[in-house]
């Protein structure tokens, strides 16, 4: 069993068996991250470039340390967001990176489809670290891993995704992944942030948070982008949190062992209350730990056999 494609551009393109392979491979990787000597030699002589056209601390650091734990050489390329529309073209930037001998690039960009564009224009392997509102496959994989680790299986769970579904690549990748396991997926948020025809993705959409979280196994809370209120998608953060902030009462409506996920960084008091963020159902801190294991698994599966 191996991954069928050269690149990891989206969960859309993975089979359930491939997802299982990645999650299974992440288990021994997590062991490596928890021992004293957090290093294995398997990717010695391989090089990873993280190329982020959008700010990120967590995902970039996670890729970097994942590569280092596997003994790959890792270089972070800073691309100021302001230079996207001027300066060097994306094709030229990527070609330059390729010519320095990198084997794989973890690529983030604010525009959907950019990772596909990069993949088409390079022989390097490409891991999509988030493209616009399209996909964030490694986040979804770490979410699936975290859920599976606690629940034992992903099959037929009830999962609610809360917030700005319209602009969320995390929501999309989670939906594409969870539907493969027969999960009942609910999305909930203000009508202006629910994308058109979302139900055709295999989800139910709700406007009422209380209804949406009733009896669910997992609540995945999206970060609300504060900029969105300026373009009139919702009136204020205040009103947003009145309607859609997950508080302990919502957790009570869900199953007793409900898991609370959030991709971070959190806006406490906006989309999630501190009691919930720090509560016993919260997996938010473990998600970060699992993120490293998932990225190690991917790097190994994509580079280990070549």
């Amino acid at each position: 069993m191996e991954l069928a494609k050269k690149d990891l551009l989206g969960i859309k393109e993975l089979s359930k068996e491939e997802i299982d392979l990645i999650l299974d491979t992440a288990i021994p990787m997590k062991d490596v991250t928890t021992r004293d000597i957090k290093k294995v030699p398997t990717l010695r002589g391989k090089a990873l470039a993280t190329v982020f056209y959008e700010n990120s601390t967590r995902t970039r650091t996670s890729f970097e340390i994942a590569g280092k734990y596997l003994s790959a050489d890792v270089v972070n390329l800073n691309v100021p967001t302001s230079s996207v529309q001027k300066g060097e073209s994306l094709r030229d930037t990527i070609k330059n990176i390729e010519m320095m001998g990198f084997d794989v690039v973890a690529f983030r960009h604010s525009m959907s489809g950019s990772a596909h564009y990069v993949a088409k224009n390079t022989d390097m392997k490409v891991i999509n670290a988030g493209d616009g509102a399209n996909e964030h496959p490694t986040q979804a994989l770490l979410d699936l891993y975290s859920i599976r680790e606690k629940k034992g299986s992903l099959e037929n769970l009830k999962v609610t995704i809360v917030g700005d579904i319209l602009h969320s690549r995390v929501a999309r990748s989670n939906i594409y992944g969870l539907t493969k396991y027969g999960c009942e997926i609910r999305v909930v948020g203000p009508a202006t942030l629910i994308p058109p025809e979302v139900e055709r993705l295999g989800v139910k959409s709700y406007y009422s948070l209380s209804e949406a979280v009733r009896d669910v196994d997992v609540i995945n809370i999206l970060r609300i982008q504060k900029e969105r209120q300026n373009v009139g998608l919702f009136p204020s953060l205040d009103e947003y949190s009145d309607l859609y902030m997950i508080s302990p009462e919502h957790v009570k409506l869900a199953k007793d062992d409900v898991l609370i996920l959030h991709p971070g960084p959190m806006n406490r008091g906006v989309e999630i209350s501190s009691e919930v963020a720090d509560g016993i159902n919260s997996l938010i801190v473990e998600q970060v730990q699992n993120g490293v294991a998932i990225r190690m698994a991917l790097l190994f599966l994509m580079l280990g056999g070549i």
Partner: peptide, 14 residues
């Protein structure tokens, strides 16, 4: 704008 703009994560033109 429609199912495919949702599926591909691109901003739709209704």
């Amino acid at each position: 704008e429609g199912y495919y703009s949702t599926f591909y994560g691109l901003k739709g033109i209704p």
